[in-house]
């Protein structure tokens, strides 16, 4: 198991080095950058995709847009899109990198929000109208709470995507944890590659756990069936 021992020594070298804990390229700074870029992209994607998905699901207009965007987002190579935007717009700001991140994370949220709203039991919706609620009220008080598990699933899938793509985006000059991996690989500094990779994997797993918790907290017990109805 020689690779295991070198693996452990690389980790020790990476996490043990004082340089990696203070200064502009240190672990806390890179971690915050990663959080900032992926958080920003995810936030923008949510702001675009949730209202759009609610509108399309509620009105039933524009379903084709949802299907096409979902398939296209899966087929488009992230690295190619990143390089294309950077070649087109330059690297003067982070936007040439953030735009493709947002573009790729809109479809999972859009699809799941749409499916969630569309999948609500029609009888439930009719009952809400029957009780005198208006269109927007039905959406806000009935459809959204019932569709919330799927909406959150969409956000979780997007978060997975965005954390991974932010890593790849380090290749086109973006900061964040991907820097350790990309720069370390270029300079054959394997301690940096292995340490950075482990950090990114941990980051992704923490994001997953946070989403699972968010789901438990925000989804109504009646919807998640944690509450036994007799």
């Amino acid at each position: 198991m020689t690779w295991l021992s070198s693996f452990v020594s690389w980790l020790g070298e990476f996490f043990g080095s004082g340089e990696n804990w203070s200064g502009p390229g240190s672990i806390p700074v890179r971690l915050l950058e990663h959080l900032e870029f992926s958080g920003l992209a995810l936030l923008l994607a949510v702001l675009i995709a949730v209202p759009l998905g609610l509108a399309i699901g509620h009105t039933g207009r524009g379903e084709l847009l949802v299907v096409v965007s979902a398939n296209l987002a899966r087929a488009l190579p992230t690295l190619g899109l990143l390089v294309m935007f950077v070649l087109l717009l330059g690297t003067a700001s982070i936007w040439p990198v953030i735009i493709p991140l947002v573009l790729l994370s809109v479809p999972p949220i859009l699809v799941n929000t749409f499916e969630g709203i569309k999948g609500v039991d029609p009888e439930l919706r009719d009952a809400a109208y029957g009780m005198g609620l208006r269109g927007p009220q039905v959406l806000g008080r009935v459809l959204v709470p019932v569709a919330l598990p799927l909406i959150l699933l969409g956000c979780r899938l997007s978060a997975i995507q965005v954390v991974a793509t932010t890593t790849v985006a380090a290749y086109t000059g973006l900061g964040g944890l991907g820097r350790y991996v990309i720069d370390g690989f270029a300079t054959k500094d394997y301690a940096s590659v292995v340490g950075g990779s482990v950090l990114i994997v941990l980051f992704a797993l923490v994001v997953q756990v946070l989403f699972a918790l968010a789901q438990r907290v925000t989804v109504s017990p009646g919807v998640s069936q944690r509450l036994k109805v007799r």
Binding site: W3, S6, F7, I160, V163, A164, T167, V168, G178, V181, F185, Y190, V193, V194, G196, S197, V198, I200, V201, A204, L205, V207, Q208
Partner: peptide, 13 residues
């Protein structure tokens, strides 16, 4: 949920 790039990198060894 594991991002592909770090997984590739870890597998290289």
């Amino acid at each position: 949920a594991l991002p592909s790039l770090p997984v590739f990198m870890l597998l290289i060894s």
